[in-house]
Amino acid sequence: MSGNGNAAATAEENSPKMRVIRVGTRKSQLARIQTDSVVATLKASYPGLQFEIIAMSTTGDKILDTALSKIGEKSLFTKELEHALEKNEVDLVVHSLKDLPTVLPPGFTIGAICKRENPHDAVVFHPKFVGKTLETLPEKSVVGTSSLRRAAQLQRKFPHLEFRSIRGNLNTRLRKLDEQQEFSAIILATAGLQRMGWHNRVGQILHPEECMYAVGQGALGVEVRAKDQDILDLVGVLHDPETLLRCIAERAFLRHLEGGCSVPVAVHTAMKDGQLYLTGGVWSLDGSDSIQETMQATIHVPAQHEDGPEDDPQLVGITARNIPRGPQLAAQNLGISLANLLLSKGAKNILDVARQLNDAH
């Protein structure tokens, strides 16, 4: 009898209710805020589980004197976190989706994509230029951005401005803007500013005609071990179906173009009346040469937790077992079709030249 009692006690200790789920994140304040929001949602869904947040620095956090596009290494903000995932030191990792490459290392998958916040870019102005827009900034004003995508589009749109690289986390960039006289304004992701509670610093939100956004911008991705079915089931509740389908289309477009950090590629997606609209573009580094096109596809946005595919093969690095396969494939095909259209119009040449120029500098 006593033996059975011990077995029952052991089973209770090993039951999922007692389990601590370890969540990996970057150390920056924004990353911690984003991770806290994901953990809060998981806690609400699984009140019996405990969650421990483990923060670590990544290569991208450490190399702050070089433009991201020049470092010449993929997975700048993800490699150390993936290493911890691989060694079973954490069970899942919360990322900004735009930091996750469209091809993940073997053994990993994006197990959830959370509801997207505003994906557009924002302009934050130096205190002396508050009330201005990019259009009304004085001639030769210097605007800071760490992104080739932003610089290429904005140089084309605002030729009277000069664009220079600015690195560091959000706090560091804002301090550089406010305390030094080098920059009249800087460009940042609206979602990051909003998550930090800095709505009052948003001086201008850039519309798609001015600057399309990065693939996955404004959404959070939760990376897990691809074979860890328990954790895949656990994080599945975080999937937002519309965000998922938009981001599958965007990531398929980028992957098929073979774009990345070192080339200016941008997108804009919208879901309306059962249609998914995808606009994508590529630019030369100075913005003088560009190709942009829009395509659409009829896609039914499923309700969360309709029964999805059981075999769960990944699409552009994403596993969404609780979302039907048909809409996911339709979104992926839309991204591939748009990429093929741009490639047929000469996108590869623009991107190759951009890559060579970026590598040469």
Rank of each mutant, 00 (worst) to 15 (best):
I71Q: 15
A151E: 02
G218Y: 02
T41A: 11
E310L: 10
L104A: 09
Q204T: 00
H199S: 14
V316R: 11
E52F: 11
M56N: 06
I205K: 08
I110T: 05
S146I: 06
T136E: 12
R156H: 13
K227Y: 15
F108G: 07
A189H: 00
L134Q: 02
T66K: 02
K43R: 10
I110N: 05
G72T: 09
L234F: 08
I318Y: 11
E250T: 04
H268C: 07
L257R: 09
I318Q: 02
L137C: 06
V94Q: 06
N322Y: 08
A320F: 03
P138M: 12
K70G: 11
L338K: 06
S146D: 05
R325W: 13
S96Q: 00
A122N: 12
V353T: 15
H95I: 02
T41W: 08
G111N: 03
E89M: 09
G197V: 06
M56K: 14
H268M: 15
G72D: 07
V202T: 14
D240Q: 13
A122P: 03
N358G: 04
I166Y: 07
Q181A: 07
D230I: 15
M56C: 04
E209M: 05
I187E: 03
G144L: 06
R325E: 11
S146T: 08
P106T: 13
V130K: 07
V124H: 01
Q328G: 09
L81S: 03
Q229E: 13
V316D: 10
M212S: 09
V123Y: 02
L100W: 05
S69G: 10
L254Y: 00
H268N: 12
N118W: 10
E210K: 02
R195L: 11
H239P: 06
T279W: 05
P313D: 03
V235E: 06
T145A: 15
G236L: 05
T59R: 07
C114S: 12
E82C: 06
E117I: 15
F158T: 13
V215F: 04
L68V: 11
S69R: 11
A152Y: 09
M196R: 05
G144W: 04
V90D: 01
L137K: 02
G326Y: 12
E162L: 12
A189T: 06
Q304M: 06
T279G: 10
A189V: 02
I63C: 11
A219R: 03
I350V: 14
A151L: 12
K79A: 10
C114Q: 12
H300T: 15
K70N: 15
L174M: 14
L85M: 11
I71W: 07
A44W: 10
V222M: 09
S147E: 04
L104C: 09
P138Q: 14
L254C: 00
D311G: 14
R201A: 03
P127R: 13
L154S: 06
D359R: 15
E242F: 15
A226Q: 13
H83N: 13
D352S: 10
T66M: 11
A44E: 13
S284E: 00
I166A: 09
A320K: 05
Q155P: 09
I54P: 02
L343H: 14
T243S: 10
L170F: 11
I291P: 09
D273H: 03
A214R: 00
D61E: 10
V142D: 09
A112V: 07
Q304E: 14
S75T: 15
A214K: 03
I299E: 11
A347T: 14
I53K: 11
